[in-house]
């Protein structure tokens, strides 16, 4: 199962640039294609495509969402167990850990590279204790 690109593609390369696994290939101004083997179904290509040319694995066209409306992970440190599962689940390498609680030396996750976050929600899906929620960025 993988996302795929329809003939509406204008070859703008936006999807190719954002794909965290370099699963998309294609020349500028030509229709792009998604590699089934490399696609991880994060959907970033669909959210960024200005032409509405990306379909999800079920064939439904994914609507473009303005970047400012993309969801971002927020971490409930009272629930978080600092297990790093979310950090490793992030395909965009946007998360890292750091000391955040006073007098608590455990390293908790945070969004260290916000510009790299694609709002895929893999971190929230992976968290075993539901300590990660997805919300629109305050900015």
């Amino acid at each position: 199962m993988a996302f795929f690109i329809t003939s509406d593609c204008t070859g703008c390369t936006a999807c190719k640039s954002i794909c965290p696994t370099s699963a998309i290939s294609g020349e500028k101004k030509q229709q792009h294609a998604v590699s089934d083997a490399a696609c991880i179904d994060c959907g970033a290509c669909g959210r960024i495509c200005p032409a509405g040319a990306v379909a999800n694995p079920f064939g439904r066209i994914v609507s473009k969402i303005p970047k400012k409306n993309w969801v971002r992970p927020f971490f409930n440190l009272d629930l978080c167990m600092a297990c790093n599962i979310c950090v490793e689940a992030c395909p965009a390498n946007a998360l890292d850990t750091a000391l955040q609680k006073i007098r608590d030396l455990h390293p908790y996750p945070f969004l260290v590279r916000e510009s790299q976050c694609m709002g895929c929600g893999f971190c929230a899906q992976a968290c075993p204790v539901d300590a990660v929620t997805l919300e629109k960025s305050a900015g």
Binding site: N84, I85, E88, L105, H106, P107
Partner: peptide
Amino acid sequence: EIRKYHCYSCPLGCGG
């Protein structure tokens, strides 16, 4: 110890 260290998927954090 300046911080604890957790391995992947470990809620315990015995390292440092």
